[in-house]
Write a protein that binds this DNA or RNA. Structure first.
Lengths: 339, 339
DNA sequence: CTGTTAGCGCCTTCAT
DNA sequence: ATGAAGGCGCTAACAG
């Protein structure tokens, strides 16, 4: 391995001068800079991060924590997309990105502890927001810089988070169904432990209320991500004496499963039943029918969270903030006008 | 930050003793071990990786390189799934995982160079295999430990890689179509720059040959991953004087797009046209119809590549190997018997 | 402008 | 079985 000393020797200067050249210190003459850089090139020198981090007490790396991967939720294209968003600013800032890999909450916690205690990273991005989350609590207790994608369960003024206004989005998309003449509207959500599910559900409820529509017993269902849960949800809904004519589904991926179930029940979307959902994952464009869904700008969510985190690691006094990314409803073919 | 010295002071021993306790050196008495460990716990001591890496000249970290993310290919659930597989053994071995984030090939190359030159990682996993890949070449030239998921374009006896027998799989799945009475069989593949596309295509060709079926002009198409390309592919195929009755599609995600296009042309699968594909991503179960596809065991692909890489970083003399993961055809509802 | 010195936190001889 | 000393590669005062 080529070290700073080798470069120093070859270019006939001291190691510290080389170090300063690397940092592009203005107090080094252009001549020596040139000389040193030439030597670096010749020798194929590249600084060793570990040595650098050791003295700098900073790693220029951030940890990205996915939710526990025991279930298929992780298969959601949401993740590659948000990773891309994070990656773009990480790359720009010349940071690196550590990915958590745990399957269970316990494994994840231990990984985060390793990252934090072992100075692997300067900060952490949490790609989920869930009730009573040990990881969140740990990070808070440690006072370790982190930002959350989604809304914190509590202490939301102390935790920097990047989120959509999911309540409003839920309200608005439900309102769309109402505007199209629907009154019997069901809600199918993912786990209620996820804050995002709760928010979207609140929006749904608010829209109904505002329209003076009575909430129906049994119209609200929570299910696991894919088909198994989807099956039950659809079975349940359709066995009701007055089944809904419209569905608000909290995630495009769930919608996919629902769509499939609906079809197997001989129900056509949107002719027999309308459906709207959230995320606008690329898949929602190629389902049949294409989904009317809320585009939450996943990429931006990722990019902004990375940006906020980096700022925070650079300046410990950076105040906590809430960053709300605008959403936009994308109208496609999964909703029909009820006369 | 709590250091080894603090622990030493509190437990009344020297720093080196503490270090030995961490390494669980057998020449330290159980008594002092106990004493030291107690102090570590009290103080909340955790070793600093950077310091450790610096002297150990190893990072216990691996880099994972995704293909360039300029296109939607990255949205393929293949990636979260393979990441899970890698993660499982990484975690087990107490390694960490760096994720590349570049969007273009150039960015990716520069990231890999940083990883390698800067001693960020001990080895690298390439999640793709493409023609004339600069990253692969760089890694080879450097003699840096890496393994590839897929088949190397060249030097395949020198590069450890984890792959399926895609030629055979392609042949077998095509044979299935033939067995079901199909003779006019088209092939829709992703980029020909990807080795995997080529292999699957070779299998397709081999099956036709074996069955004595003449390859038809215009039956082979290569397209970008999602809909835009899918549209053209379907348009082209269906405008042929004798359109195919069966389709071999090189990736489930492409199949999704094709399915959608087909439907918009009023073609029903499998009644009007049959379709088989590859990967058995969870989505292929909830499409309508559910896809008959080759289960390539993505998770295992990831786990085995991580395992092979770790072995390689631990023992530089570990010979290059080819690891072939078995596949299995999953029969579902996208193929019909032709009488 | 540049060199010298010290030290980041840890591990590893070499002593004892 | 344990301690002392040196060094991994780099940066940051402090001199000059």
């Amino acid at each position: 391995m080529v070290t700073i000393k080798d470069v120093a020797k070859v270019s006939g200067v001291s190691p510290s001068t080389v170090s300063r050249v690397i940092a592009n210190n203005p107090r080094i003459s252009e001549d020596t800079k040139k000389k040193v850089r030439k030597a670096m090139k010749e020798l194929g020198y590249h600084p060793n991060v570990n040595a650098r981090n050791l003295v700098a007490k900073s790693t220029k790396a951030i940890g990205v924590i996915m939710p526990s991967s025991a279930n298929v939720a992780l298969q959601n294209p949401f993740f590659p997309e948000i990773l891309r968003g994070i990656g773009s600013v990480i790359h720009e800032a010349e940071y690196s990105m550590y990915l958590s890999t745990g399957e269970t909450e316990k494994e994840i916690l231990s990984e985060v502890q390793r990252m934090v205690y072992g100075s692997y990273v300067d900060g952490v991005i949490l790609l989920y927001s869930r009730i009573n989350d040990k990881v969140t609590n740990f990070l808070r207790e440690q006072g370790f810089p982190f930002v959350m994608v989604g809304k914190p369960q509590e202490h939301d003024t102390e935790i920097t988070h990047v989120d959509n206004d999911n309540v409003r989005a839920g309200k608005e998309i439900t309102q769309h169904l109402i505007d199209m003449g629907h009154e019997k509207i069901g809600f199918i959500g993912g786990s209620r432990d996820l804050l995002v599910t709760r928010d979207r559900e609140s929006g749904y409820v608010a829209a109904l209320e505002k329209a003076g529509i009575q909430e129906c017993e049994g119209y609200k269902i929570h299910t696991e991500f894919l088909k198994s849960g989807g099956r039950e949800a659809v079975e349940h809904l359709m066995s009701l004496s007055t089944p809904p004519s419209g569905l608000v589904v909290s995630d495009d991926l769930i919608s996919l499963g629902i769509l499939s179930m609906l079809e197997s029940y001989g129900l056509r979307v949107p002719q027999d039943i309308s459906l709207v959902s959230f995320n606008n994952v690329y898949l929602s464009e190629i389902t049949r029918p294409a989904l009317t869904t809320v585009d939450i700008q996943i990429y931006t969510l990722g990019a902004q969270s990375a940006k906020a985190l980096i700022e925070k690691t650079l300046n410990k006094n950076e105040p906590a903030k809430r960053i709300i990314i605008p959403y936009e409803i994308v109208y496609r073919d999964s909703v029909s006008q009820l006369s």
